[in-house]
Design a protein around this nucleic acid. Structure first.
Lengths: 195, 195, 195, 195
DNA sequence: GATGAATGAGTATTCATTCAT
DNA sequence: CATGAATGAATACTCATTCAT
């Protein structure tokens, strides 16, 4: 549907992902992204008007991928509780497979509101809303307690996964694997909300 | 209990807390902190060798308070499950009462590792470990399932609260109050882990 | 013989020579050098990593010229005593023709060791050694007394010329000309050391 | 004749002599001089209005001593040529005994004109003039050639000694001693100018 | 489109000097 | 007299952005 983005554009996004993850947005120099992408500094400004536009584009691109992937995965299940389980596993696997991106979302997304006035992260909201929708569906089917407030539950569940991700991204070695972590979190949460 | 830090030192920390929360660490100018504290730029350097030392001191000071307060609150309960409930409520109330500090912890703490080499946030680990200890205690008393892995559970629980906090800090209006949020999260989590 | 340095590089060296001579290294601002060179402040940092690198480059460039020129001049004479005479005249003429450079060498070279750790002025040593070599040659040919210690004589002779130069550089008007001064110094020194 | 300077004043001069010799005027901090003198920063401003006044006072004090000492030494001889010999030996011995002061005179005196507008170093001129006077006296007594121009000769002779001093101050080890150096320089110069 | 040299606004930090105690 | 905490002007250096080639 989107026409294919130019190759240089993608090279810049890839280089920025690597550098931002490594050094953070502020400590990364435009010239470092250019070097990493194998192009001249000035070339970046043909594709992006300002440094912060690279970060925004990067968010949008990655989040779209993540969102599409998650929708596909959830679509494979019928049972809302199974969907929730799959959400957790898919999310954590994604983190494991995309550490750079995960680190940027963990770190830079959180401060982005400080320097990017009026940037609202729509994609991220949509991602969270996938959980909310599943919970509502579960409540309709009487699989999830009526007392559960979906907008709170989505944040609680996502927060649990997200904190787990932070640990994954920041620590070098881990005592347990992704599957175990996903299973544990699912177990707490599903027992906690199901009827 | 702590010997009183110099009045200027405290004024700088207070001014930095306000400014960092408002504009973020990088966007905040030393001169803005000085103006907010009602002192000259140079005076800051009598108390802090570098800009980043203000942020570090701020973390340490605030986390110590938070940690002390939480220990006091938990100490009021005997039952591990009641301790967990109190943890959640205390944490969220703290966030509500200290939005500036909460925002800094949410935002700046996460990126701090990027620009502060070898700064390890010991206090934060200790805070998380309070949860782990409660869970182990609960398991000993047969109140919490043996299958629960404490180091995963602490992150899941804290993550849930933390994501809730983020929402609290960033949004202007909320559909429900802190007590409701705390009750919901406790309900999910405690049902999820208790025997 | 040297490949041509970039034009901007040369403009910076020329501007720095003028400014350092006029105000001294410490009192000269980077922005003044830039203005004098007709470029932006930042441009200087494309060519030099630090302010002191300009001074070092300036020394090296000038001393190389001076050294090459002196070797050429000395080469024109066969007799060691004639070489010494030509050294004096060439040195003083050089000072007269390059007051700015002379002033920098007089003033800044002397303090350079204070702020430029491990900068050793090799070219300057080589320049002094030209005198030492001539004296040794003169001793071999029995034109100069064996008792003369070349390493002392070179300093005595150079020092005499150098003090003369200082007077030339610092005073506005002079009672006698360069040729007279050179002749006088040669006369004292050559009578003093010849057999 | 001078009323005795206050003890603190002398302590400051002594501390400044040490620090300026070690690090140079510009690199020396007022606070370093104060620490070295064992007093508070502010106290320096009771005795000196500005940093550069310390350097000027230091010059004046030291040069007065040097001048008085040299006059006394020269007064011990009757023969102009013997006076010259004694000048050289006295000067070099002084350097050897007062390395800090020697270094300051070598280095800082030379750049002082850059930052001290209208500071004219009268004492230094008087010191040089001692040589000129001896030469004139020698010419009157027919001991020194009439062709010798005293104002050139004084600079040549002083320059030779001064360059020797620089070597003494800057080098750690020396191949020959002060007496040898003085004897050599005297030998060149006296043979060079005597009738 | 692509380049990379040049720009110059922007800022953390220093340190001589002051002055209330 | 002596202090030393406070001041704030001053400046080297950085780096996002531009634009002539």
């Amino acid at each position: 549907m989107n026409r294919k983005k130019s190759e240089k554009y993608n090279r810049i996004i890839a280089a920025a992902t690597k550098m931002f993850a490594e050094k953070g947005y502020y400590k990364t120099r435009i010239s470092e992204i250019a070097r990493e992408a194998g192009i001249a500094d000035g070339t970046i400004y043909i594709y992006f008007s300002h440094k912060d536009q690279i970060l925004i584009a990067l968010f949008e691109e990655k989040m779209q991928e993540v969102l599409d992937n998650m929708k596909r995965q959830i679509g494979l299940e019928d049972d809302p509780l199974a969907k929730i389980e799959r959400f957790a596993l898919t999310h954590l696997r994604l983190i494991e497979d995309n550490k750079d991106m995960a680190e940027i979302i963990q770190v830079e997304l959180r401060q982005s509101s400080k320097f990017m006035k009026n940037y609202h992260n729509l994609k991220f909201s949509q991602y969270l809303d996938l959980i909310e929708d599943i919970i509502r569906e579960g409540q309709k089917k009487n699989l999830i307690k009526k007392e559960v407030i979906p907008s709170i539950a989505k944040r609680a569940f996502f927060g649990a996964l997200d904190e787990m991700s932070r640990y994954w991204v920041l620590s070098k070695s881990h005592k347990y694997d992704i599957e175990t972590a996903a299973k544990q979190i699912n177990s707490y949460f599903i027992h906690g909300i199901k009827t």
